[in-house]
Design a protein around this nucleic acid. Structure first.
Lengths: 222, 222
DNA sequence: ATCCGGGTCCGCCGCGCGGGGGAGGGGGCT
DNA sequence: AGCCCCCTCCCCCGCGCGGCGGACCCGGAT
């Protein structure tokens, strides 16, 4: 409502491939009310161009030299007052960057294979309302997802394959004898491995070792 | 691209408040290329109306009598071949229903306070491309979030306050003696509680009890 | 009034577990 | 050839733990 009256939607394109930028420019410029005011071929350039031109919308590729689209998005949203809406452009919709982009504050996503009309309307929609199709709840969800897996503790990598196996079975609630049976080795061997696991995890007993495994997200690594 | 040529976008409104339906109808009908073909005042009605009219887009309120919007969405997407895009209408954007709606397969969200232009463009956009602003990755994220906390097992509620306390300390890696000290009771008392916890959790030893606590999300309940 | 369940304690017993040490074999690195 | 790590297995010892039975107090339900 606010920007519709004051003039056209001002757009900056950030993509390292010239052809992509040209294609987008052609599509968007043909549309009344849309104006492509600048381009950038890298993340760093995107940040400075946006800082200078203050567009309403940025179409940001994820894979770019110097700084990728995610960090460029972060920098723009963090450093600018009244920042533009940022639409992230990806090739694959199950791209892992999607999470990070959401967390970084992207307002929308576009697939590179999207047709012209979708592109135009996505830009229009995003320029008007940031949270229309991306509720705060979704963003919170992404944030949660991100900070849920921060630290795979150092000791995980130090476990030998056998020790990992033993820890996994410990964390399944098996006794040493059961683990021995399951692994086809003697109980004494299992005890040795358990002792190593306790030492490496800094655990006092098997219970603490299991706790460490869970806290480390060790059980999710299936 | 496909539907634009073959005719107007056919819309069904599902909301238990007549005023909301009327308002939406007025806004959408005034727009060229959009046509409101039907209305429903409940989730159940929405399912049958959609099944009969086969619209392109459904605007679905979450809170409705009989069947809520979420389950109506599920039913529609599950039972119909070539189902319509469903846009969920919520009052608050951090509504917890957002997760479930995403998991149910909703293509977009609208706030009831959205302005007319946003509404129209959201409908247009969603009619054209389902996954444009909701990548598969986001949907997967919601699904993961959903099945992460489905079952707070029955035994959790059956624990007495003292037993919960003991289990929490067990899951912190403390020995019975340490728990006794921390709780200001005798070691024998702790042993009694531990025995109760083991019985209720179906655990064989404290390790399995701790596992049960983690699996039940018992440790997140801080 | 009785009963029941939660919380608090106490003993005894057996066993799985953890700590310590030793020993042999295989594979990789130098 | 050495060396070291990993895997394998053995002994003994001590203790925390889990299973059993019994006891008391108290508050609420019957």
């Amino acid at each position: 409502m606010t920007e519709t009256a004051v003039g056209p939607i001002r757009i900056v394109l950030a993509d390292d491939e010239r052809m992509v930028r040209t294609a987008l420019r052609v599509i968007l410029s043909a549309e009344p009310g849309l104006e492509v005011v600048g381009e950038a071929a890298s993340g760093a350039e995107a940040v400075s161009v946006v800082r200078e031109l203050r567009p309403d919308v940025v179409l940001m590729d994820v894979r770019m030299p110097e700084i990728d689209g995610i960090r460029a998005t972060e920098q723009i949203l963090r450093t600018l007052a009244d920042p533009p809406r940022i639409v992230v452009v990806t090739t694959f919709e199950n791209d892992s960057y999607v999470y990070e982009a959401l967390r970084a504050g992207a307002s929308g996503f576009l697939l590179k294979r999207a047709d012209a009309d979708s592109l135009v309307q996505a830009v229009r929609l995003v320029a008007r309302s940031d949270s229309l199709l991306f509720p705060a709840a979704v963003r919170a969800l992404a944030a949660e997802h991100g900070r849920a897996k921060p630290a795979p503790p150092a000791w995980v990598a130090r476990l030998t394959s056998r020790e990992s196996e033993v820890l996994r079975l410990m964390a399944a609630g098996l006794t040493n004898a059961e683990i021995a049976g399951r692994m086809g080795v003697g109980p004494a061997t299992v005890k040795t491995h358990v002792a190593s696991v306790l030492a490496k995890t800094g655990a006092r007993d098997r219970t603490q070792a299991v706790i460490a495994a869970y806290e480390a997200g060790f059980m999710n690594t299936d």
